[in-house]
Amino acid sequence: MSLQVVTANRLEDGLVVFLTSDGNWSENINDARIADGKEAADALLAEASAPELDIVIVGPYLIDVEQQGADIVPTKYREVLRTKGPSVREDLGYQAV
């Protein structure tokens, strides 16, 4: 099993967010809490799916990631796009900051 993190969309503005170690949500994937193994991933998703979070985020789910040095990088292209923004206009999205 690969490493996984939980991602969702923040209801306030629709931005992609990641569950952090302190139970908050961050726009930066490098702040995400990493689950290693099925049990840890299931527990992480259960925490992110708590009913009280329905007013903060929507659609939490697990994504596969890999550690590349100090960075956490999604393994699927779809998640890379969600993390960084549009691939056709690098002056838009998170990569433009």
Rank of each mutant, 00 (worst) to 15 (best):
S2G: 08
L3Y: 02
L3H: 05
V5K: 01
A8F: 01
N9K: 06
L11G: 03
E12M: 07
G14L: 03
V16Q: 02
V16T: 07
V16N: 04
F18P: 08
L19E: 04
T20W: 00
T20Y: 00
E27K: 01
N28R: 07
N30L: 08
N30E: 08
D36V: 09
D36W: 02
G37L: 07
G37I: 11
E39N: 13
E39T: 14
A41N: 03
A43E: 12
A43V: 03
A43C: 04
A43N: 12
L45D: 13
A46P: 04
S49Y: 00
A50F: 06
L53D: 10
G59V: 12
Y61G: 05
Y61M: 15
Y61Q: 10
I63A: 03
I63G: 00
I63D: 11
V65S: 08
Q67H: 09
Q68P: 01
G69M: 12
D71F: 06
D71A: 07
V73K: 09
K76C: 10
R78K: 13
L81D: 13
R82A: 13
T83A: 15
T83N: 08
G85L: 14
S87V: 13
E90Y: 11
D91Q: 12
Y94R: 15
Q95M: 10
A96D: 08
A96H: 11
A96M: 07
